[in-house]
Protein backbone atom coordinates (compact mmCIF):
# COMPACT_ATOMS: atom_id res chain seq x y z
CA UNK A 1 0.00 0.00 0.00
CA UNK A 2 1.04 3.57 -0.57
CA UNK A 3 1.35 5.47 2.73
CA UNK A 4 -1.68 7.60 3.53
CA UNK A 5 -3.02 9.88 6.22
CA UNK A 6 -6.06 8.72 8.15
CA UNK A 7 -8.87 10.59 9.85
CA UNK A 8 -12.40 9.90 11.00
CA UNK A 9 -15.41 12.15 10.48
CA UNK A 10 -18.45 12.05 12.67
CA UNK A 11 -20.66 14.31 10.54
CA UNK A 12 -21.46 14.51 6.84
CA UNK A 13 -20.37 18.11 6.29
CA UNK A 14 -17.11 17.36 8.08
CA UNK A 15 -16.47 14.42 5.75
CA UNK A 16 -17.36 16.48 2.67
CA UNK A 17 -15.06 19.32 3.76
CA UNK A 18 -12.11 16.91 3.87
CA UNK A 19 -12.76 15.40 0.45
CA UNK A 20 -10.66 16.29 -2.59
CA UNK A 21 -9.13 14.53 -5.57
CA UNK A 22 -6.47 12.70 -3.54
CA UNK A 23 -8.70 11.79 -0.58
CA UNK A 24 -10.98 8.78 -0.50
CA UNK A 25 -13.81 7.80 1.82
CA UNK A 26 -13.65 4.42 3.52
CA UNK A 27 -16.75 2.57 4.74
CA UNK A 28 -16.57 -1.23 5.22
CA UNK A 29 -13.23 -1.28 3.42
CA UNK A 30 -13.97 -4.66 1.79
CA UNK A 31 -13.25 -3.33 -1.68
CA UNK A 32 -11.05 -0.30 -1.03
CA UNK A 33 -8.48 -1.99 1.25
CA UNK A 34 -8.11 -4.76 -1.32
CA UNK A 35 -7.60 -2.23 -4.14
CA UNK A 36 -5.09 -0.29 -2.05
CA UNK A 37 -3.06 -3.43 -1.33
CA UNK A 38 -2.82 -3.99 -5.08
CA UNK A 39 -1.86 -0.34 -5.76
CA UNK A 40 -4.99 0.09 -7.89
CA UNK A 41 -6.29 2.73 -5.49
CA UNK A 42 -3.58 5.02 -4.10
CA UNK A 43 -5.27 7.74 -2.05
CA UNK A 44 -3.05 10.17 -0.16
CA UNK A 45 -5.54 10.27 2.66
CA UNK A 46 -8.54 8.30 3.88
CA UNK A 47 -11.62 9.60 5.65
CA UNK A 48 -13.50 7.07 7.75
CA UNK A 49 -17.20 7.80 7.14
CA UNK A 50 -18.67 4.94 9.18
CA UNK A 51 -19.90 7.34 11.89
CA UNK A 52 -20.77 10.19 9.52
CA UNK A 53 -23.52 8.65 7.43
CA UNK A 54 -26.99 7.31 8.28
CA UNK A 55 -27.03 3.62 9.27
CA UNK A 56 -30.80 3.20 9.57
CA UNK A 57 -33.65 2.02 7.39
CA UNK A 58 -36.51 4.47 7.69
CA UNK A 59 -40.08 4.46 6.45
CA UNK A 60 -40.86 7.64 4.50
CA UNK A 61 -44.05 9.09 3.04
CA UNK A 62 -43.33 7.42 -0.33
CA UNK A 63 -41.55 4.25 0.70
CA UNK A 64 -38.24 3.66 2.45
CA UNK A 65 -34.85 5.23 2.81
CA UNK A 66 -31.80 3.02 3.35
CA UNK A 67 -28.87 4.88 4.92
CA UNK A 68 -25.56 4.54 3.05
CA UNK A 69 -23.92 3.00 6.14
CA UNK A 70 -26.52 0.23 6.59
CA UNK A 71 -24.40 -2.91 6.39
CA UNK A 72 -25.45 -5.78 4.15
CA UNK A 73 -26.38 -8.23 6.95
CA UNK A 74 -28.81 -5.96 8.82
CA UNK A 75 -30.21 -4.89 5.44
CA UNK A 76 -31.03 -8.50 4.54
CA UNK A 77 -32.50 -9.20 8.00
CA UNK A 78 -34.58 -6.04 8.34
CA UNK A 79 -38.29 -6.62 9.06
CA UNK A 80 -39.52 -3.87 6.70
CA UNK A 81 -37.26 -5.08 3.90
CA UNK A 82 -38.43 -8.67 4.35
CA UNK A 83 -42.10 -7.68 4.43
CA UNK A 84 -42.18 -5.09 1.65
CA UNK A 85 -38.99 -5.33 -0.43
CA UNK A 86 -37.86 -8.97 -0.07
CA UNK A 87 -36.11 -8.86 -3.47
CA UNK A 88 -33.41 -6.74 -1.78
CA UNK A 89 -32.78 -9.36 0.92
CA UNK A 90 -32.66 -12.16 -1.65
CA UNK A 91 -30.07 -10.34 -3.75
CA UNK A 92 -27.91 -9.36 -0.77
CA UNK A 93 -27.85 -12.91 0.59
CA UNK A 94 -26.76 -14.20 -2.82
CA UNK A 95 -23.61 -12.07 -2.58
CA UNK A 96 -20.21 -12.42 -0.88
CA UNK A 97 -19.94 -14.24 2.50
CA UNK A 98 -21.41 -13.65 5.98
CA UNK A 99 -18.17 -12.00 7.13
CA UNK A 100 -18.08 -9.63 4.16
CA UNK A 101 -21.81 -8.86 4.45
CA UNK A 102 -21.28 -7.87 8.10
CA UNK A 103 -18.69 -5.32 6.96
CA UNK A 104 -19.96 -4.12 3.56
CA UNK A 105 -22.05 -0.96 3.46
CA UNK A 106 -24.91 -0.10 1.11
CA UNK A 107 -23.05 2.91 -0.34
CA UNK A 108 -19.83 0.94 -0.82
CA UNK A 109 -21.71 -1.83 -2.59
CA UNK A 110 -22.82 0.61 -5.31
CA UNK A 111 -19.27 1.91 -5.75
CA UNK A 112 -17.39 -1.40 -5.71
CA UNK A 113 -15.22 -1.80 -8.78
CA UNK A 114 -15.25 -4.48 -11.45
CA UNK A 115 -13.74 -7.93 -10.90
CA UNK A 116 -12.25 -8.11 -14.41
CA UNK A 117 -8.99 -10.06 -13.87
CA UNK A 118 -6.92 -7.56 -15.86
CA UNK A 119 -8.24 -4.63 -13.85
CA UNK A 120 -6.70 -6.42 -10.84
CA UNK A 121 -3.44 -7.30 -12.59
CA UNK A 122 -1.39 -4.11 -12.69
CA UNK A 123 1.14 -5.66 -15.09
CA UNK A 124 -1.42 -5.73 -17.93
CA UNK A 125 -3.02 -2.94 -19.98
CA UNK A 126 -6.51 -1.94 -18.83
CA UNK A 127 -8.40 1.16 -19.94
CA UNK A 128 -10.41 1.25 -16.74
CA UNK A 129 -7.33 1.28 -14.51
CA UNK A 130 -5.20 3.43 -16.80
CA UNK A 131 -7.08 5.37 -19.46
CA UNK A 132 -5.76 4.78 -22.96
CA UNK A 133 -3.58 1.77 -22.08
CA UNK A 134 -5.78 -0.73 -23.95
CA UNK A 135 -8.16 -3.53 -22.98
CA UNK A 136 -6.59 -6.92 -22.27
CA UNK A 137 -9.91 -8.70 -21.87
CA UNK A 138 -11.16 -8.24 -25.45
CA UNK A 139 -8.45 -10.48 -26.96
CA UNK A 140 -7.88 -12.35 -23.68
CA UNK A 141 -9.69 -14.12 -20.85
CA UNK A 142 -13.27 -12.86 -21.08
CA UNK A 143 -15.63 -15.59 -19.93
CA UNK A 144 -16.87 -13.35 -17.07
CA UNK A 145 -17.25 -10.29 -19.33
CA UNK A 146 -20.24 -8.40 -20.72
CA UNK A 147 -22.64 -9.54 -23.41
CA UNK A 148 -24.50 -6.26 -23.83
CA UNK A 149 -23.79 -2.51 -23.64
CA UNK A 150 -20.00 -2.83 -23.87
CA UNK A 151 -17.62 -0.81 -26.05
CA UNK A 152 -14.39 -1.47 -27.90
CA UNK A 153 -12.58 0.04 -24.91
CA UNK A 154 -13.99 -2.05 -22.05
CA UNK A 155 -16.14 -5.16 -21.69
CA UNK A 156 -16.15 -5.39 -17.88
CA UNK A 157 -19.27 -6.09 -15.80
CA UNK A 158 -20.46 -4.51 -12.56
CA UNK A 159 -20.15 -7.16 -9.84
CA UNK A 160 -22.93 -6.20 -7.42
CA UNK A 161 -26.00 -8.29 -6.61
CA UNK A 162 -27.74 -5.69 -4.45
CA UNK A 163 -27.59 -3.19 -7.34
CA UNK A 164 -29.51 -5.56 -9.62
CA UNK A 165 -32.42 -5.62 -7.18
CA UNK A 166 -32.25 -1.84 -6.71
CA UNK A 167 -32.33 -1.33 -10.48
CA UNK A 168 -35.36 -3.64 -10.78
CA UNK A 169 -37.21 -1.72 -8.06
CA UNK A 170 -36.55 1.71 -9.64
CA UNK A 171 -34.67 2.94 -6.59
CA UNK A 172 -32.93 6.28 -6.52
CA UNK A 173 -29.59 7.33 -5.07
CA UNK A 174 -29.53 10.38 -2.83
CA UNK A 175 -26.13 12.05 -3.10
CA UNK A 176 -24.70 15.08 -1.35
CA UNK A 177 -21.96 17.23 -2.86
CA UNK A 178 -19.25 19.38 -1.30
CA UNK A 179 -21.51 22.43 -1.14
CA UNK A 180 -23.95 20.39 0.97
CA UNK A 181 -26.53 20.25 -1.82
CA UNK A 182 -28.42 16.96 -2.17
CA UNK A 183 -29.59 15.46 -5.42
CA UNK A 184 -31.49 12.33 -6.35
CA UNK A 185 -30.20 10.15 -9.19
CA UNK A 186 -32.43 7.45 -10.72
CA UNK A 187 -30.77 4.11 -10.06
CA UNK A 188 -30.63 3.16 -13.72
CA UNK A 189 -28.79 6.44 -14.44
CA UNK A 190 -26.33 6.03 -11.58
CA UNK A 191 -23.95 3.53 -13.18
CA UNK A 192 -22.50 4.22 -16.62
CA UNK A 193 -21.78 2.24 -19.75
CA UNK A 194 -18.07 2.15 -20.66
CA UNK A 195 -18.25 3.99 -24.01
CA UNK A 196 -15.03 5.98 -24.45
CA UNK A 197 -14.61 6.65 -20.71
CA UNK A 198 -14.33 3.20 -19.08
CA UNK A 199 -12.32 4.72 -16.22
CA UNK A 200 -15.61 6.15 -14.94
CA UNK A 201 -17.95 3.59 -13.36
CA UNK A 202 -20.78 5.90 -12.34
CA UNK A 203 -22.22 9.40 -12.31
CA UNK A 204 -21.52 10.27 -8.69
CA UNK A 205 -20.46 13.96 -8.86
CA UNK A 206 -16.82 14.68 -7.98
CA UNK A 207 -16.14 14.61 -4.22
CA UNK A 208 -19.81 13.89 -3.45
CA UNK A 209 -20.92 11.07 -1.20
CA UNK A 210 -23.84 8.70 -1.21
CA UNK A 211 -26.22 9.63 1.59
CA UNK A 212 -28.91 6.98 1.13
CA UNK A 213 -31.02 4.91 -1.25
CA UNK A 214 -34.72 5.58 -1.68
CA UNK A 215 -37.31 3.10 -2.88
CA UNK A 216 -40.97 3.86 -3.49
CA UNK A 217 -43.73 1.54 -2.31
CA UNK A 218 -44.54 -1.10 -4.91
CA UNK A 219 -46.68 -4.17 -5.46
CA UNK A 220 -43.83 -6.61 -6.05
CA UNK A 221 -43.32 -7.98 -2.53
CA UNK A 222 -45.37 -11.16 -3.00
CA UNK A 223 -43.96 -12.34 -6.31
CA UNK A 224 -40.25 -11.77 -6.69
CA UNK A 225 -37.12 -13.85 -7.09
CA UNK A 226 -33.34 -13.54 -7.46
CA UNK A 227 -31.50 -16.22 -9.41
CA UNK A 228 -27.70 -16.19 -9.51
CA UNK A 229 -25.65 -18.60 -11.61
CA UNK A 230 -21.97 -18.87 -10.64
CA UNK A 231 -18.94 -21.13 -10.78
CA UNK A 232 -19.58 -22.50 -7.31
CA UNK A 233 -22.75 -22.69 -5.21
CA UNK A 234 -21.90 -19.79 -2.94
CA UNK A 235 -19.27 -17.06 -2.38
CA UNK A 236 -18.61 -16.31 -6.05
CA UNK A 237 -19.49 -13.46 -8.37
CA UNK A 238 -22.29 -13.97 -10.88
CA UNK A 239 -21.80 -15.39 -14.34
CA UNK A 240 -25.35 -14.18 -14.86
CA UNK A 241 -28.00 -13.16 -12.35
CA UNK A 242 -31.66 -12.22 -12.69
CA UNK A 243 -33.91 -10.18 -10.44
CA UNK A 244 -37.56 -10.73 -11.40
CA UNK A 245 -40.68 -9.22 -9.89
CA UNK A 246 -44.30 -9.52 -10.90
CA UNK A 247 -47.42 -7.67 -9.85
CA UNK A 248 -50.08 -10.33 -10.41
CA UNK A 249 -53.84 -10.14 -10.48
CA UNK A 250 -55.51 -13.56 -10.86
CA UNK A 251 -52.53 -14.90 -12.75
CA UNK A 252 -52.51 -11.90 -15.11
CA UNK A 253 -49.35 -9.82 -15.10
CA UNK A 254 -50.21 -6.20 -14.28
CA UNK A 255 -46.57 -5.14 -14.29
CA UNK A 256 -43.17 -6.85 -14.46
CA UNK A 257 -39.59 -6.02 -13.59
CA UNK A 258 -36.59 -7.87 -14.97
CA UNK A 259 -32.94 -6.94 -14.36
CA UNK A 260 -29.59 -8.73 -14.62
CA UNK A 261 -26.11 -8.74 -13.19
CA UNK A 262 -23.02 -10.23 -14.82
CA UNK A 263 -24.09 -9.08 -18.28
CA UNK A 264 -23.11 -5.41 -18.53
CA UNK A 265 -21.03 -2.55 -17.13
CA UNK A 266 -24.12 -1.60 -15.09
CA UNK A 267 -27.12 -3.47 -13.68
CA UNK A 268 -29.13 -4.15 -16.83
CA UNK A 269 -32.91 -3.74 -17.20
CA UNK A 270 -34.69 -5.87 -19.82
CA UNK A 271 -37.26 -3.19 -20.68
CA UNK A 272 -38.62 -4.76 -23.85
CA UNK A 273 -39.22 -8.08 -22.11
CA UNK A 274 -40.92 -6.26 -19.21
CA UNK A 275 -43.20 -4.52 -21.71
CA UNK A 276 -44.03 -7.85 -23.32
CA UNK A 277 -44.96 -9.43 -19.99
CA UNK A 278 -47.42 -6.67 -19.16
CA UNK A 279 -51.01 -7.92 -19.52
CA UNK A 280 -50.01 -11.53 -20.29
CA UNK A 281 -51.01 -14.67 -18.40
CA UNK A 282 -48.23 -15.85 -16.07
CA UNK A 283 -47.19 -19.22 -17.45
CA UNK A 284 -44.16 -21.03 -18.85
CA UNK A 285 -44.89 -20.06 -22.47
CA UNK A 286 -45.13 -16.37 -21.58
CA UNK A 287 -41.90 -16.57 -19.60
CA UNK A 288 -40.03 -18.27 -22.39
CA UNK A 289 -41.21 -15.69 -24.90
CA UNK A 290 -40.06 -12.88 -22.58
CA UNK A 291 -36.64 -14.53 -22.16
CA UNK A 292 -36.31 -14.85 -25.94
CA UNK A 293 -36.96 -11.14 -26.30
CA UNK A 294 -34.31 -10.35 -23.69
CA UNK A 295 -31.59 -12.40 -25.38
CA UNK A 296 -32.36 -11.59 -28.99
CA UNK A 297 -29.75 -8.87 -29.56
CA UNK A 298 -26.98 -10.01 -27.24
CA UNK A 299 -23.45 -10.40 -28.55
CA UNK A 300 -21.04 -12.56 -26.58
CA UNK A 301 -17.22 -12.29 -26.35
CA UNK A 302 -14.84 -14.98 -27.63
CA UNK A 303 -15.13 -17.05 -24.42
CA UNK A 304 -18.59 -16.42 -23.04
CA UNK A 305 -21.11 -17.55 -25.64
CA UNK A 306 -22.47 -19.85 -22.92
CA UNK A 307 -23.84 -16.82 -21.08
CA UNK A 308 -26.66 -16.29 -23.58
CA UNK A 309 -28.50 -19.62 -23.16
CA UNK A 310 -27.59 -19.49 -19.45
CA UNK A 311 -29.28 -16.11 -19.17
CA UNK A 312 -32.35 -17.37 -20.99
CA UNK A 313 -32.66 -20.22 -18.50
CA UNK A 314 -32.06 -17.91 -15.54
CA UNK A 315 -34.77 -15.50 -16.69
CA UNK A 316 -37.31 -18.31 -17.09
CA UNK A 317 -36.34 -19.81 -13.72
CA UNK A 318 -36.59 -16.47 -11.94
CA UNK A 319 -40.02 -15.71 -13.43
CA UNK A 320 -41.20 -19.20 -12.52
CA UNK A 321 -39.90 -18.75 -8.95
CA UNK A 322 -41.93 -15.52 -8.70
CA UNK A 323 -45.04 -17.70 -8.69
CA UNK A 324 -43.88 -19.42 -5.47
CA UNK A 325 -45.08 -22.80 -6.74
Amino acid sequence: MRPFLFSKSSAINQALAKKNGTTQYIAGGTNLVDLMKKHIAEPESLVDITSALPAKIEVTAKGIQIGAMVRNTPLANDAIILAKYPLIAKAVLAGASPQIRNMASTGGNLLQRTRCPYFYDVTTPCNKRKAGSGCSAIPGENRMSAIVGYSDQCIAVHPSDLCVALAALDASVKVQDKSGKTQSIAFTDFHRLPGTTPERDNNLPANALIHSIEINENAFAKNCAYVKVRDRDSYAFALVSVAAALNLKDNQIVEARLASGGVAHKPWRWLEAEQYLKGKTANAATFEAAADIAIKDLRAQSHNGFKIPMLKGAIETALQQCLNR
Binding site: F6, K8, I26, G28, G29, T30, V33, D34, K37, L46, D48, T50, T73, S97, P98, Q99, I100, N102, M103
Partner: peptide, 27 residues
Protein backbone atom coordinates in the same frame (compact mmCIF):
# COMPACT_ATOMS: atom_id res chain seq x y z
CA UNK B 1 -5.02 -14.80 0.99
CA UNK B 2 -4.90 -11.27 2.50
CA UNK B 3 -7.66 -10.29 0.02
CA UNK B 4 -10.97 -11.30 1.60
CA UNK B 5 -11.26 -14.54 -0.32
CA UNK B 6 -10.58 -17.35 2.16
CA UNK B 7 -11.84 -16.53 5.68
CA UNK B 8 -8.67 -17.76 7.49
CA UNK B 9 -8.37 -14.35 9.18
CA UNK B 10 -11.95 -14.33 10.59
CA UNK B 11 -12.33 -12.67 14.00
CA UNK B 12 -15.32 -11.18 15.83
CA UNK B 13 -15.69 -7.41 15.95
CA UNK B 14 -18.34 -6.33 18.46
CA UNK B 15 -19.58 -9.93 18.44
CA UNK B 16 -19.99 -10.22 14.66
CA UNK B 17 -17.68 -12.19 12.41
CA UNK B 18 -15.48 -10.07 10.16
CA UNK B 19 -12.33 -10.37 8.03
CA UNK B 20 -9.32 -8.91 9.81
CA UNK B 21 -7.29 -8.74 6.57
CA UNK B 22 -9.70 -6.15 5.09
CA UNK B 23 -10.12 -4.18 8.34
CA UNK B 24 -7.76 -1.28 8.96
CA UNK B 25 -6.40 -1.28 12.50
CA UNK B 26 -7.14 2.46 12.59
CA UNK B 27 -10.87 1.66 12.44
Amino acid sequence: CDHGQCGACTVHIDGERALSCLTLAAM
